[in-house]
Amino acid sequence: MCRTVDLNQAVLARNDGAAHTLRAELAARGTTLVNLLSSPGSGKTALLEHELSLARERSVPVAALTADLATENDAARLARSGASVKQVLTDGLCHLEAGMLARHLEGWLPESTRLLFVENVGNLVCPASYDLGETLRVVLASVTEGEDKPLKYPTAFGLAHLVVVTKTDIAEAVDFDETAFRANVEQVNPGVEVLLTSVRGRQGLGTLLDRALAAADGAAPHRPVMARQGHGHGHDHAHAEHAGVTVASRS
């Protein structure tokens, strides 16, 4: 017979559970995860190269995992810093998921790692929905992308703990309106910090590392309004239930 059944389950419960488990495991070993999100080519790798080199100069144990649809170029660039680096090819998947990330960390992530930077697939839509177990979610936008991006990708910018503007050295050439950009960020994520950086113009380098270290030292990260809905897509599931579950990743 036909029966109507109430399930009331969060669609992303499995990812959220895997993220929760990974966050706890990393915390237990003293590692803080920083998830970097932006559209393709915003300058994630370029900025990360500098932050990793600086971390090495300051003797902070860092590691970086970078995810792309294809090529190992980003890992090769990041490895020049001397940090432990891993390239993940997502086999067509447009974002990383927590269970998938956990499997890639297994047997690779050096035990003493203090900061683990994860460069997500260049994409401002899909990665925004997937918690990776990060303590700090950083969303980057280059000055060439226009001031309205926070309004066009409200989920990405709205869930950021930190927003980073990149390539400020060419801001003038592209008429970047910083005030408008800040106002748009504020509209979807009131109170979030916006950092200005340029790899070429050497602006704001090291600030991302400072914020990451502060988070690792336990500084409470910014709480986005969008993350404040009694756990939006539902953490009312029992977390324990997910511990040790093998999480299937699919493309």
């Binding site: 017979m1 036909c2 029966r3 109507t4 059944v5 109430d6 399930l7 009331n8 389950q9 969060a10 669609v11 992303l12 929905s129 009131p190 309004v225 969008m226 404040r228 809905q229 939006g232 897509h233 539902g234």
Partner: peptide
């Protein structure tokens, strides 16, 4: 300070299925 009351839902409310 703003609280979000609704809008982030992504939930399976329920199903209709044949059983028995």
């Amino acid at each position: 300070t703003t609280d979000l009351l609704a809008g982030r839902e992504l939930r399976i409310a329920g199903v209709d299925w044949e059983d028995g």
